[in-house]
Design a binder for these strands. Structure first.
Lengths: 270, 270
DNA sequence: GATTGACTCTCCTCTAACGTCATAGTTTAT
DNA sequence: ATAAACTATGACGTTAGAGGAGAGTCAATC
């Protein structure tokens, strides 16, 4: 039988942590003296404690760990571990991306001496867009679901024997953009104009090209909105993006390119 | 002039976030109507908001961001960015390490079918250690300081023309091990017995070899402590580790090897 | 038996960066 | 004038404990 202090030393965790785990029921001591309230742990509980520490390291929350331990099914743990591995891999990619952005930022400073107001310069202009014949899939979705929906779109295209014209994009119907879940329509251009789901009519748009990963798309968005106001135009419809260079072209995030189109009309300023 | 809602949409942040930033003084609106309390932002504040978002993405806390923006010195920002880049790089390495540990864990499951109680099997035995002539440097330090102190130890060795014998290790004087800050003595073996700082006298130790990264050293530690109790020995002095295969040998974390020695004596169990 | 020092208990507050209600007041469009 | 949309404040919740106060307990020594 080990006291809290002894057990904490062996397991390399703080006494506070043991108290906390007891409180949330993650690791209750073998015996608690009902008179003094003193906790006593057994040597076998060390294994459980070490496993908890390991799972914590893998990035599980204490709640998830408790679930895993309560259920006690090895297959559950196995699949959760696999899932967690994917999550960590994604996280690593994300970190890598941020590092490369940060490097860009620093390089930019060395070239231009400007660092505080580091923002990409966006070349913005109005264009009259061409008609675009597309098949489309509109849903409430998050940015992370793009892959899934795009592949089903391409499957459909194959089934219906349509020929892609290389255009891929997304229309944002919500004014307030939320990357977890928004009203988004994915579109893929097809050559068979007659058999398309819809034709995005050509019209006046303010447009720019965003170079780099999607994480800084909001910069482009902001620049466009500002430009539209400043140049006497007004927002007039759902904006959309066309992904011209992406991971599907085998490129690294920093080389991706996205065209952004904002339907606008001239403001009748009185 | 933009209302909170408009500004939040342009900058792609929530209204709550704007409230919060106002409250902590990170981004106060240009004007606040003293009657209604309504906040109004200017278009120029968008730049500040975008910069805040960017810095947040780089991993700065809001407090750090506030410092940077208040001070407004470009050189400060530059050095902070560089520092942050290093931090992110370390973080990525750490994530990679965890991923490889997780992979090991999964592989281990596929081999042995055991996953819940996944713990390395440690071969533990008692040995009579040889005398070790070492130079040493004892301080309150954290695990992260090992690199610094080891290099100064090796510098000293070069200056005093001592010959290293390849032994590198650390003695832990605190019972309670804390990886941030503990009473630790780094040691490096030398061939000139007479000129060593100290000689670690040969004696009876319980010992094992830990294979893999240091993050799971506590598993070995726990296994040893348990073994010592179970086999009728008692803890008798500060434990130490010898790093036999490390990054200095050009190895990946999973191939590192650490010998752990726990001075013990036979317990006089009555 | 008394004292001392080390240990342990419970209970309280605090962290970061907001999200989530609840309730009340304001603006704008019809 | 009224409804719909927007905004404000304020309280509480989130994670995984850390830190501290004040009180009780244990083991060893005198």
């Amino acid at each position: 039988m080990l006291t809290t202090g002894q057990f904490s030393k062996i397991c390399q965790v703080s006494v506070k942590t043991l108290h906390y785990y007891d409180k949330i029921g993650l690791l209750t001591p073998l015996r608690v003296d009902s008179l003094t309230g003193y906790r006593y742990y057994s040597r076998e509980q060390m294994d459980r404690m070490l496993l908890i520490g390991r799972l914590k390291r893998y990035g599980f929350s204490l709640e998830e760990i408790a679930d895993i331990l309560v259920c006690g099914d090895e297959r559950v743990l196995f699949s959760k571990l696999k899932h967690q591995k994917e999550k960590l891999t994604l996280q690593r990619q994300e970190t890598e991306l941020i590092i490369s952005e940060l490097s860009d930022h620093l390089q930019n400073f060395e070239r231009t001496g400007n660092i505080m107001g580091y923002q990409k310069r966006y070349e913005i202009c109005t264009v009259y867009t061409p008609d675009r014949a597309v098949i489309a899939s509109r849903q409430m979705m998050g940015v992370k679901d793009f892959g899934t929906y795009f592949s089903s779109l391409y499957e459909r295209m194959a089934k219906e024997e349509l020929t892609p014209d290389g255009i891929r994009g997304a229309v944002y119907y919500d004014e307030e953009f939320n990357r977890e879940c928004s009203d988004i329509e994915l579109i893929a251009g097809v050559k068979q104009t007659g058999r398309a789901d819809k034709i995005i009519k050509g019209r006046l748009c303010a447009s720019t090209i965003h170079k780099g990963a999607y994480s800084s798309l909001s910069d482009a968005y902001g620049a466009l909105v500002a430009w539209i106001e400043e140049n006497g135009y007004a927002w007039d419809g759902a904006p959309y993006e066309i992904y011209t260079k992406t991971q599907f072209d085998g490129l690294a995030p920093k080389d991706w390119e996205t065209e952004i189109y904002f339907p606008v009309k001239e403001k009748d300023d009185k």
